[in-house]
Design a protein around this nucleic acid. Sequence first.
DNA 1: TGACATTGTGTGATCGTTAATACGTCGCGT
DNA 2: ACGCGACGTATTAACGATCACACAATGTCA
Lengths: 339, 339
Amino acid sequence: MGRPIVRLKDVADKTGFSVNTVSLALRGSPRIPEDTAMRIRDAARDLNYMPNQVAKSLVSRETKTIGLVLTDITNPALTQAAQSIELALAERGYSTLFATSNNDLDEEKRVIAMFQSRQVDGMLIYPRSHRELDHIRQLRRANYPVVLLVADPDAGVDAVSVDERRGAYRAVRHLIDIGHKRIGIIDSANPLGNHEKREGYDAALHEANIAVDPQLSADPQGHSVIRGYWAMDKLMRLPQRPSAVFAANDSLAIGALRWTQKNGLRVPEDVAIVGFDNIEFAEHAATPLTSVNYEIRLVTDLAVARLIELIGTEGALPEPSVTLIDPELIVRESTHRRN
Amino acid sequence: MGRPIVRLKDVADKTGFSVNTVSLALRGSPRIPEDTAMRIRDAARDLNYMPNQVAKSLVSRETKTIGLVLTDITNPALTQAAQSIELALAERGYSTLFATSNNDLDEEKRVIAMFQSRQVDGMLIYPRSHRELDHIRQLRRANYPVVLLVADPDAGVDAVSVDERRGAYRAVRHLIDIGHKRIGIIDSANPLGNHEKREGYDAALHEANIAVDPQLSADPQGHSVIRGYWAMDKLMRLPQRPSAVFAANDSLAIGALRWTQKNGLRVPEDVAIVGFDNIEFAEHAATPLTSVNYEIRLVTDLAVARLIELIGTEGALPEPSVTLIDPELIVRESTHRRN
DNA sequence: TGACATTGTGTGATCGTTAATACGTCGCGT
DNA sequence: ACGCGACGTATTAACGATCACACAATGTCA
C-alpha cells in the first residue's frame, strides 16, 4: 500500500527531458541521439526505475501473462506439467498466474472468470471433467485463446494431451499378452469424469474376447497412495481375485503395491501391477513399476506453442486442433513376463 | 491480441447513464437509487461485463497479486507448499504469480525484478541460498513486503519456516538413541546453500561425543531419488560403512532405501534410514520411512498471514520477524529400535 | 536567401477505471 | 417566493505508460 514508485516522470524531472523522450530513450528508439539516451539511462539506473507493467498492459492491451488452471497441483503428473509450462512460458516472456480448481466445477468457473478479469492473454486448463466444457467452449467462442491439457477430439476446444485411451490400452494389452485374463482396474468411475483410460481398458479386453467384469473395477475417489491402497483392498478381497491390476496413475499403483507388501503377496508372481505417468517414484518403488510413459515436456511444449499461436492470431481464431501424444509402456519388474 | 472487451463505457452507452454512474452502481454505492442500479446491473449482465483489473490496479495502486518464487516445484515439499499457499491466498482474494529460479541466483534476481515490475503487492520466496540475501534485504529496505519460506534469524527479512536445524537434530538424535554411532548424512554441501540440517546433524553428534567424520557426508547434488541412490552408494562403499543414514529429504531417503534393496541389505537391521518432510511416499515406501514431519499448512498459513499484514501496513514496515515451526519425528520401520 | 528536409523533443490523446467535485433539480422551511 | 440542502447524475482529472503528431531548430540546396 502506497509503496513509493519511480515513474517515467521522475526520470524526466531529473534529466530535464520530457516523459516522452525518456520513454523513447529507454526503449532504445533511434530517434534519440546516443548521448541523450545515455544520460537518461544513467538517471533511470540511479533512481532504480522499473517500468510499470500494469500501465504498459493498459495501453498495449496485453499482459504477457497466461492463466494456468490445475485441478490439484499435488498430483505428481500435474506438478511436472506445471513446472515445464512455467519454464516454456518464461522462455517466451510470459508469466504464469496459477490457480487450482480443487476438482470443483464452480471453482473452475470462478478461476476462469478471475483470469479473464485480470486480462490474461490466454489460458491453459486441466479441466475437472471432459463432459462439462460449456464454459470453456464459450470462452473460445468469445475469441479467447485456450488450450486444454486433456484431450477430447470433439471438445471444440484446442487441446494437447497424452493419449490416455491408447496408453491404457497398451498397458492392459501388455497384461493380456503375458497371460492375464482377470485384470482389475483402479480408476475414477465418476460419470462426469474422464473415461479415456477406462475406454482403453475396455477396448483391450474386448479385443481379447475377455468380458468386462464390473466387479473388477474399483473407484479410488482420489489419486493418492492411500486411495490406491484401499481400492486394491477392495479388489483383492473378491472371491475371484484379479491376477493383474491396471491403476490410472502411479500413486494409486504404489498404493496397490503397498497393499501386496502388507498382505504378503508377491509382485508380479501373485499379482501384476501397471501404473500410469511413470513418475520418478515408479522406477524406485519397492518393486519397480511397469508404467505408461510419455514426455511431459513434449505435451506442455506443444500446448504452449499452440497457445502462443492462438494469442498471435489476428481476428477470429482458427479451427480448434487436438493433438494426442502417443505414450509408450515401460515394462519393469511389477509385470514380469510369464512363461 | 485485439480481443473485444466490454467496458464500463459500453454499459453506460446501453443504459444512457454516464460511465461514472455505472461504475458506482456496479460497486453498490448508496448514492445510486435501487432501480437505476438494477437497470445498470441488468445491462452489465447482458453484455457480460467484467471489470478490467488492470485498469483498476493502475488506479488503486494494488494488484491483489503476490509473487511466489520457488527454486523448483518438483520438489514434493515445495509442491505441497505451493498448493497451500495458493489456497490461502485465494481465500483472501489474492492471485498467485509463480516462477521458479531453478536454483540459480541470477534467475532468482530476474524473477524478483519481474514481479516488481508487475507490481505484485508482495512476495513469498524460497531463496536459493541463505547466504545470498542482499537482493532480498534491499527489497525490504525499499518497503517491499517479502516473506521468506526458509528461516534465518539474522536475515533481516521476515521468514516463516520449519526449524530444519532442530528437525535434523531430532532425527540424528533418534539414531543415536537407538544405538548408532556411525551415522552418515546425505545433504547438499554447497557452501552457498543452506546449512541448517547439517548443523543439526553436527549438534546431535557433538552432544553425544561422536566425532564428525567428513567421510560420512555425501553431497547428492540435487534432491531426486536417483541422487539419493548414488549418494548412498558412495557412503556404503566406504571401508567403514555407516550403520545409519540421515537424508535431507524423503526423495533422497527413498533413493538410499532403493540402494539397500538392490544390494541386498536389510533396513533397519543392516542400515537405518531417516528422511525429512514426511511426504506421502515416505509412509508407503518399501520400508516405511522414519521422517521429520511438520504441518506444511501451518508454515504457509503463517507466512501468508504475515505477508498480508505487511501489505496492510501504512508507512514503514515493522521490524522483521522470524518464525520457526518445531517439527516432530515420525518413527517408522526404517529405524526400528535396537534392543 | 528562401523553401524544404531532417533532426530532436514536446504536446495531447488514449487505455479502463476510480475519486473528487461540479451541477442541475427537487422539496422544504420560512 | 426565495434560498438552501439533499439527491441524483455528469464532468474532469488522475493512475503510468505509449503513440501519433506537432513544432522548433538545424542543415541543405536551388
